[in-house]
């Protein structure tokens, strides 16, 4: 694990925080054909925070996270992880990050065990360290009994868990998880949450995207609301929700809730 380069000036360090940002993105924008997916998003994720990114479907969450993690080249803007520019020094930046992308395939003809090993060894880790961590991760995520099964035969939730394990194996300083709880059963979700909680407690930073507001409100200390490719609100969860529940505040910010008395015909009585 490399330390952030100390004598390198950090880009646009937020004036309010004494701690350096784990992830700092400035003016990220991306256009696909005629559609602007992300329209200039700037965000500071303080180190040691549990950061939730919420937004309706198609808000640009996945596109933003892909650009912040080096998977999708932005049209405009910068992303800096612990002082390392993701797009100027991609190899250094990627060492600091563990990524769980949404909607990508895995090398699913490997067994679950092999896939986690592969992710670790690809990063040049020592074989024995990898072997030890693979066993720990399989146990923590309750996958020991299926470790020798091909990932292609896994259920959706198991696939999500094995992808999460692949993102954790190199003990990154920043975890970027796109929809980590989708299709995961409640018991496993609770396990994952406690893993993430203790990771944050030990100084790591987690960014999760989700559209389950309840989960974000309970789990995260910071939250950003994204819609239509723009940032609508960001800050600590308590600041953003301003006394209301996060869900109500979200609907209020994003709009589009229809308060009509429609669908009368759907009433059975």
């Amino acid at each position: 694990m490399t330390a952030p380069i100390p004598d390198r000036p950090l880009y646009d360090r937020p004036p309010h925080a004494g701690t350096p940002a784990a992830l700092s993105i400035q003016g990220l924008a991306k256009r696909f054909g005629g559609k602007i997916a992300v329209d200039g998003i700037s965000l500071e994720v303080p180190a040691g925070s549990f950061y939730g990114i919420v937004g309706p479907n198609g808000a640009g969450k996945t596109t933003t996270l892909s650009m912040a993690t080096g998977l999708l080249r932005p049209d405009f803007g910068t992303a800096v992880v612990h002082g390392v520019d993701v797009w100027r020094q991609p190899l250094e930046a990627k060492k600091l990050m563990g990524i769980l992308p949404d909607g990508v395939r895995l090398f699913d003809r490997l067994t679950g065990e092999q896939l986690i090993m592969y992710a670790g060894l690809l990063r040049g880790m020592d074989k024995d360290v990898v072997a030890g961590r693979v066993a720990d991760l399989l146990a923590a995520l309750d996958l020991q009994n299926d470790a020798g099964t091909l990932v292609v035969d896994y259920s959706a939730g198991m696939t999500k868990k094995i992808a999460l394990a692949s993102a954790l194996i190199h003990a990154p300083r920043l975890l970027v998880l796109d929809e980590p709880f989708e299709a995961v059963d409640p018991v496993s979700a609770a396990n994952i949450r406690s893993i993430l909680d203790s990771y944050v407690a030990s100084g790591g930073t987690v960014i999760v995207s989700s559209h389950v507001m309840d989960l974000v409100q309970r789990m995260c200390d910071h939250v950003a609301v994204v819609a239509g490719g723009r940032l609508l609100a960001a800050g600590t969860v308590d600041d953003v929700r301003a006394g209301a529940s996060l869900e109500d505040r979200f609907v209020q910010l994003v709009g589009g809730r229809s308060h009509t008395e429609g669908l009368e015909w759907l009433r059975t009585s």
């Binding site: 065990e113 090993m117 040049g124 470790a147 020798g148 099964t149």
Partner: peptide, 22 residues
């Protein structure tokens, strides 16, 4: 399909643990 326990890293355990090898 049936469940199978791990413990068989296969070729990943045999070839040298450098990126090109894995």
């Amino acid at each position: 399909s049936g469940k199978r326990k791990g413990g068989k890293p296969g070729l990943l355990g045999i070839l040298p643990a450098v990126p090109a090898g894995v």
